[in-house]
Write a protein that binds this DNA or RNA. Structure first.
Lengths: 110, 110
DNA sequence: TATCTATTTGGCTAATATGCCAAGTAGATT
DNA sequence: AATCTACTTGGCATATTAGCCAAATAGATA
């Protein structure tokens, strides 16, 4: 395996790892609807603010979200709004796992 | 957050976590081209067979791959071939992170 | 049957991720 | 300036993951 491919795999992995946590997935789903400040996301997640802040830091470093300070609140939004198209595929896997007839990405409801 | 949503998030997370490793991503990419036995995948990944076998076990439990024993080899294939549509989105995130103009899933090359 | 090849599993160590509390920072308000 | 609110960061304990070796399993072949 050459270095270029290794770098490629590593880059993709970083993004997937950042998404692969229930609280971070929840945050992404909510941000798909509208931007939110940390305190709103904290309520939704139901964990300590510091924990949510660290989750947001993970998402930020992965390039998934952008932050903007307004007043003394920090608002987060998705950098690439289409990120949830992703989940069409995840759902396909879950459906197949349940023995449902295979549906390919975007053909089922998310 | 209700129990249903929690279960939903957890199920999706399981799939994403299974994908979020360079070796497992490599395996998925290769299986998208054609089915492979463990020894072939082991060569491609360049790790111990036992390590690759455990990666395959993770992918199997997540519902991403299927295995079939033929002779004394075990062949793996993707359960949901569209899984790589995924990466259109991952690439969009990576591109945005690099400051490239935003391209949404499936509109850029993977 | 003995043996060889392919694969999985157990067990261990090292590395990484998670979550809370406490402490620090920054802008807004008094 | 002192304080309040919103957020981030440091630090630590715990949990999860990764990778290797050694041992177990299963089918193929001698």
């Amino acid at each position: 395996m050459d270095a270029i491919r290794k770098a490629h795999l590593s880059a993709r992995t970083q993004v997937l790892k950042a998404m692969a946590h229930p609280s971070r997935l929840l945050i992404i789903e909510e941000l798909e609807k509208e931007e939110r400040c940390v305190c709103e996301l904290t309520n939704m997640v139901g964990a300590d603010v510091s924990t949510v802040s660290k989750h947001l830091s993970v998402l930020r470093h992965a390039g998934i979200v952008l932050d903007e300070k307004r007043g003394n609140q920090v608002y987060y939004r998705l950098r690439v709004p289409c990120i949830l198209n992703f989940f069409g595929c995840v759902e396909s896997v879950l459906a197949a796992r349940n023995g449902d007839p295979a549906v390919c990405c975007g053909k089922g409801e998310v």
